[in-house]
Design a protein around this nucleic acid. Structure first.
Lengths: 374, 374
DNA sequence: CATTTTTTGCGACACGTGTCTGTTATTTGG
DNA sequence: CCAAATAACAGACACGTGTCGCAAAAAATG
């Protein structure tokens, strides 16, 4: 009511702006009118709220002159209707939740960025949530409460408790997609074919004559990394080699607080342990970099004495010396495929479950791998 | 109305869940009840909506038995009131916009992560927006339309056109804070004292006997980097040295698509140019790393022939070899100070303008700097 | 049982939007 | 100038919430 009275004759907030003007005259502040609701807009152009709404929503049967008049004011003021009232009325929220495992790994963050950009391009706002400090159930319920139309999981989600939340989402009609492996049969997954990628890596090393391969960050204890192990085993078995003796692990690996530290410490463990391998596969390029630095400190040359393969094809793999042989993460392709998968469900209004798609891997051979030296 | 009828006797969506149950009996799906509104909750517990609302909002004068009954159902179902209707009613949105310059620099992303965590800890949702592909005015209006209570700018925002948006925010009563330098007198800034940081760096190099310092990524053309230049000049002038001759720039620096490439190319430019400096200060650790690799390729040892100082104290500065002397970015301290600054305004209901606070820098001396070799 | 106190119910309102229905105003055509 | 067509309006509704005033029921007290 009070607002209505204020509007009769004066644009709202005028008095405030005037006093501001008197306070310091340096900046003229051209008394820019602010329109907050369609009712204000209607009053300002001298039309009814219904007509303005019809114009805003592109209905027919309206005089061109009025359309232009309204649209000009819209352009000037940057007015757009309050999204919350529309969401409340049951319209789509134009929001998609992005459930990020962590901000720590920058390959993951790059994928996040790519996903966000692609969503923005088709008019969706990304609601970014991270699992670092909160409970899965809380976040999932928050996502549903915020009326997100879908969920994209970015990064490695290892907690199997998340499976229940995914089913809850599906039951509520909210489609989802993971961009990394996830150990639940009902989950939708669009991700790089790490099995094939590590098959490529293993074959590359075997071709170079390596017969003992050390694993850094790859273990059968973590379900999401099993795919990599399968690839390694497959390549070995194809050459009648025994994976159990060809693949070498470290008993109690250090905690992975920092990739580079982890790589360096793994290098030390391997070097001081029995059955030192001649080649190593790592879970990402930073670990590979740390390992190479670790080996160098120990007097072991790369690729002279040992070979190291990274993962992701980040900048550091390109520009470290030696540059690092690695498997490309195909970030853009994965993000594009995941977003497309989700959008197609939204378009059709169908919630898909238990579908997975693998994108082919690509080995990038650089300086960190060379012939086995025995 | 139809929903109301459905509710009289059956929890909503029961039929759907039952058919689902018959479809595959493997998972029992314990017919979990879903509560979507306070009205449904009230009907389910046999109370009036007003009473339930009073319970949910912690009013007094309610029987303990009913409180417990309602809260138990809330815990079971994870119900929470629709945030949109409350926002629409004018209640606070509990949302703070985070305006990110880019996802590319990971020191910036780390600060983003820290800010998001701190906001989450005090009950705020972060609305992350990036300026990479959109118009400042559009984003600012979107932020205001989303009823964000404040805006935190993370990363280097160089576009001076943003100043108008900041004033628009202030005029609308939305507080803001930058976490890096920004070239507008009305902006609030909480950031690292880069002037003091580069004073430390310059003094360190001067102590080592260096008299010609090359600049990588630091230029007086970019306003936000002027602070660094001032620090360098101040240190030089304190020792009666002429900044104009002591500081060496490259005429037409390459585009900064990748930090490491940029560093490597800058190394080549300097090495092939006149007046080759004996020491370099860079704008971040990755550029320093790239430069060191570039110098190594050219047969110049670090720190034997040239010294290099990075910025941020990222992992790569710690674990590269040589490890890199750098200035710590004080990410946590900056994020904490910025969030505190914004929250205090929200708490007091005051919008502050043109306040800036500088956090002290810290030089971390490592292997990439050594005595000048002439 | 009567009276007081405590607890709950009922209905309404506001927030901003898009849409619907019936009615009135304006323009167009002859 | 009149009839027909077109355009605009006014008012209502639903979405879900918190709150308010008032009435009614339930409980506690004498």
């Amino acid at each position: 009511m009070g607002v209505g009275v204020c509007l009769t004759g004066f644009p709202p907030g005028l008095n405030r702006r005037v006093s501001h003007f008197f306070l310091k005259k340096i900046i003229p502040e051209p008394a820019r009118l602010t329109i907050r609701t369609t009712a204000e807009l209607a009053k300002h152009v001298g039309l009814s709220r219904a007509t303005v709404s019809r114009i805003l929503n592109g209905h027919s049967g309206i005089k061109q002159k009025n359309i232009e008049r309204v649209m000009r004011v819209v352009d000037e003021t940057g007015f757009s209707p309050n999204p919350y009232s529309n969401i409340l009325r049951g319209k789509r929220s134009a929001t998609i939740a992005v459930y990020l495992s962590s901000f720590k790994q920058h390959a993951v963050v790059q994928k996040l960025a790519d996903v966000v950009h692609r969503l923005a391009k088709v008019g969706y706002t990304a609601l970014i949530e991270t699992a670092e400090n909160a409970d899965h159930a809380d976040i999932t319920r928050w996502i549903m409460r915020m009326r997100a139309e879908g969920v994209i999981f970015v990064g490695q989600h290892t907690d199997s408790g998340l499976a229940a939340q995914v089913r809850e989402l599906a039951a509520a009609g909210v489609p989802h997609v993971f961009t990394e492996n996830f150990s639940d049969a009902k989950a939708n997954i669009v991700t790089l074919d790490r099995t094939q990628g590590l098959e490529l890596a293993a074959n590359h090393l075997l071709d170079l004559g390596h017969r003992r391969i050390g694993l850094m960050g790859i273990s059968d204890k973590v379900p999401v990394e099993v795919a990599r192990l399968i690839g390694l085993r497959r390549a070995l078995e194809a050459r009648k080699l025994d994976p159990a003796s060809a693949l070498v692990s470290v008993g109690d690996p250090p905690a992975r607080v920092s990739n580079m530290i982890f790589g360096r410490e793994m290098a030390q463990r391997f070097a001081s342990g029995p059955r030192m391998p001649t080649a190593f596969v790592t879970v990402n390029d930073e670990i590979a970099f740390g390992a190479i630095e670790g080996f160098r400190t120990l007097g072991l040359a790369v690729p002279g004495n040992v070979s190291v393969i990274g993962f992701n094809n980040e900048d550091i793999a390109k520009f470290a010396s030696p540059s690092i042989t690695t498997i490309d993460a195909e970030i853009e392709a994965t993000a594009a495929a995941a977003v497309d998968f989700l959008l197609s469900q939204l378009l059709k209004g169908v919630v898909i479950s238990a579908r997975s798609r693998l994108l082919p891997s690509r080995l990038v051979v650089r300086e960190s791998t060379g012939p086995a030296n025995r």
